Structures are given as C-alpha cells and as structure tokens.
Amino acid sequence: MTLYLGPVLFTLFVWWFSTGVILYLDGLPRRTFKVTLAVATALLLLALLGLYATRDDTRITGAYLAFTCGVVVWAWQEIAFLLGVVTGSRREPLPLGAQGWPRLRYAVQAVLHHELALVVLFAAVLAATWGGENLVGLWTYVILWVMRQSAKLNIFLGVRNLNEGFLPPHLAYLQTYFRRAPGNSLFPLSVLASTVVAALLWQAAFADGIADATAAGLVFAATLLSLAVLEHWFLVLPLPSERLWDWSLRSRRAPRVDAPPAVAVAPVASPPRH
C-alpha cells in the first residue's frame, strides 16, 4: 500500500507547498527578486543535473528524485513569470474594444517570452533524460505544461473564476486579457480528455506484474494529472480554492515601500461579442 500511498501524499504536498512558496516569494518587495531568481536558477541547474543523473535509475527512489527534479524545473518558469522577468513583449493592458484575432495577438504578445521559455525548458528536460529508462521527470514536466496551456486557453476563452488574486501587483495588467464567463466550449473537452488519460494512468499503475518503480512513476503522473483536472474545476465551480494558499498571500498584504504605481485595468468581465 505504501508503494501507492507514498507518491500520492508526496505529490499532494509538493503541489500545495511549492505553489504556496512561489506565491509568497513573488509577493515580497521587489528588491528581493534578484536573489529569488538567482536561487531559483541555481536549483534549476541542479534539477537538470538530477534528471541526467537519474535517467537510468529504475529504483523507487529514482522515481521520487526524478519527479522532484521535474517539479523544480517547472517551478523556475513559474517564478520567472510571476516575478515579471520572463513574460512577453507587451506589458500593458489589453486595448479597450479588442476582440477576435487582435485580442488573441495582443494576448500572445503579453506572454510570448514565457511560452518560449517553456519550450526551451522542455528541450532541456528532454535532453537530460534522453535515452534513459527513468522518464518520470519528463512526464512530470509534460503534464504540467499541457495542463497549464489548457488552463490558459480556458481563462482566455472565459471561465467563472479567474484566480486573479494570484497575480502580483506588477502583473495586474494581465487581468485584462482574461474573460469572465459561465464557461466555454473548450472546457468540457479539456476536462474529459485529461480525465480519461488520468484514469488510464491509474489503471496502468495497478496492473498485475508491473515493476515497483514503474508503478510509483505512474502514480506520480496520475496524481499530478488528477490535481490538474481539479484545478480546472476550480475555474468554474463556486469553491474558495484560493484559501488553500491563503498563508502564502500574506507577503502581499504587508506594506511595500518599493511597490510600483497601481496599474489601471479594465473590469474583468466578458466583453460584448460581435
């Protein structure tokens, strides 16, 4: 039972704690950002080395280490984005009245550098694990990447809960690219597809005769994907999901003498459709 319960509990903790730490760090005064990014970059390099070192480690401990390294690689781009270091060429609110392709173009410009960083990090993870038997770190990064892209598209198309409270003040302009709506046509498809894949991963993890390390790796992937599906439901259900990380948002409530001027943003609501 520990074979399955261990990875589940470990994934739950890492998902909750790492998210909270990142939110806390990007809410600190801007003078701390250079140190935060420097430490995150050092951890990124160590994580890539860890993925390379464990690429042929077929023990259960290898699965744990590879999963952790995959999360650390992903955490770097989260930190770089929320600190405002790697975002996009456009750093201002969406022009009023922008709809259709212009709105999409502006939105892509606002996060283009971030998207390119995701591709570069994927290439680095792929290179670090290439030819190895332990692909848990690669699965981890791919699941986080695909599900984050799905969440971004759903927020762009329109969902009930935009989670704008997670954005630090210096990224407040990004709220104007979101759309608040009861739902969109992509949401059920994205949830259905990811739920089916998660179910298949769970089924594979409990298959007869499967090696312990392989089972642990599949549980890591299945749990992470299941949590990503849950996060998608947080976008549309009336649930106070932000309370899960309320402790991490305290850094934004403290007085900040170096805070930038407030950015005026348009109301986060569904604009008229033409």
Rank of each mutant, 00 (worst) to 15 (best):
S89N: 06
L218H: 01
A221H: 07
S185I: 09
A264L: 08
V136F: 06
D258H: 10
P240V: 02
P240A: 06
L49I: 02
A38T: 14
T195H: 01
L237R: 08
A151F: 01
Y106L: 12
L104T: 14
Q203S: 08
R91G: 05
N184W: 13
A181Y: 03
L9V: 13
L239C: 01
G100D: 12
G209T: 02
F220D: 03
E133C: 04
F166V: 08
T36M: 04
G100Y: 15
S251Y: 10
L237C: 05
G70E: 06
L135K: 04
A107H: 13
A53I: 04
A222D: 02
T58L: 15
G84Q: 00
V229T: 06
L200T: 02
F178C: 12
T19H: 09
Q149A: 05
V146L: 10
T223S: 12
V120S: 01
L112M: 12
D246M: 03
P267C: 07
T11S: 11
I60Y: 10
L3T: 13
A215C: 08
A110D: 12
W247I: 00
A205V: 00
R180Q: 03
F13W: 10
I210A: 01
L192T: 08
G158T: 13
P188N: 07
A207H: 03
L157K: 12
W245K: 02
V119K: 04
T32Y: 09
A222E: 07
N163S: 10
Y4V: 15
S241V: 13
V263L: 14
D212I: 07
A262M: 06
L171G: 13
T68E: 04
G217A: 07
T41R: 11
P261H: 10
N161W: 03
L126V: 10
D57N: 08
L9C: 13
V197F: 06
A266K: 00
D258F: 07
A124I: 15
V73F: 06
A264K: 10
F206Q: 03
R55F: 05
A124K: 08
L37K: 00
I210G: 03
